[in-house]
């Protein structure tokens, strides 16, 4: 990240991921940076973005300064088009109504599998993490954008546990496991934007944030990662930062 830049790494994550969302898309957003990024995209370039929350909310507009503690509180329902049971909002994924699933991750591997359940051996874990929530459903059933900090301990050769399936063992293994739809699309970190090779399904570097080198990305990734015609992203604009700060004045999600 740029030395002395006027933004935190969480703000960078929110802004870079917001830019990937397109107007008119239906986005299933998790709490934290995804919620913030989807809301930011709605305000900036995608007013027709439909947000879904797993608490059972279809098409809300979160109010600035009232970020919810999860996607299951009344704050998530502001200006929503519909409130529906949890099972039914998740079934929209299975039915195929959702363009993008969008969530954070604790640990990811080179095929985009996510772990938010156990650090260490699942039968005797070093750390028991909170678990999947809707993460497994979202990543099983639609195309995914994942946003997370770029650290060696988070970017691993193989996750300790597949909570949310990416491309499993690469190649065609995802479809063979019974997941013909969806898969990892982008991983947005505080260093780079990563995609996946269409054949091997291995993670590749697609773009670097301003001031970041490819070596820096490799130093912070504990598996070999290829680069694919690297571009450089644009720095966060004042407008993006000010809207973000308006939504999260207490820096609950962007500390």
């Amino acid at each position: 990240m740029i030395e002395g830049a006027n933004h935190t790494s969480s703000e960078l994550l929110a802004i870079m991921s917001a830019r990937i969302l397109r107007d008119g898309q239906v986005v299933f957003a998790g709490v934290g940076v995804p919620l913030l990024a989807a809301t930011l995209a709605q305000r900036l370039h995608a007013p027709g973005l439909t947000i879904l929350f797993e608490g059972g909310v279809l098409g809300p507009f979160v109010v600035p300064g009232e970020l919810p503690p999860s996607t299951n509180e009344q704050r998530c329902t502001r200006k929503a088009n519909m409130i529906l049971p949890i099972t039914d909002v998740l079934l929209l994924l299975q039915r195929g109504y959702v363009d993008v699933g969008f969530m954070g991750g604790a640990q990811i591997d080179k095929y985009g599998n996510l772990n938010s359940s156990y650090i260490g051996d699942p039968s005797n874990p070093k750390i028991r993490l909170p678990g999947t929530g809707g993460g497994n459903d979202i990543s099983s059933l639609t195309q995914m954008i994942v946003t997370m900090k770029h650290e060696r301990r988070r970017f691993v050769e193989k996750v300790d546990f597949v909570t949310s399936p990416g491309f499993l063992d690469g190649g065609t293994s995802r479809a063979e496991a019974g997941l013909p739809a969806g898969g990892m699309f982008k991983v947005v970190t505080d260093l780079a934007i990563l995609g996946f090779d269409p054949v091997t399904r291995e993670m590749v570097v697609e773009a670097l944030h301003p001031g970041v080198t490819l070596n820096e990305v490799r130093d912070n990734t504990s598996f070999d990662i290829k680069a694919n015609g690297i571009e450089t992203t644009e720095s966060p604009t004042d407008r993006e930062l000010s809207v973000l700060q308006e939504f999260d004045p207490d820096r609950i999600y962007t500390a």
Binding site: L141, P165, L179
Partner: peptide
């Protein structure tokens, strides 16, 4: 029946 959880550790445990 569902199309979720297939192929994952969540299913395995």
């Amino acid at each position: 029946p569902t199309r979720s959880m297939l192929g994952s550790g969540v299913r395995d445990v």
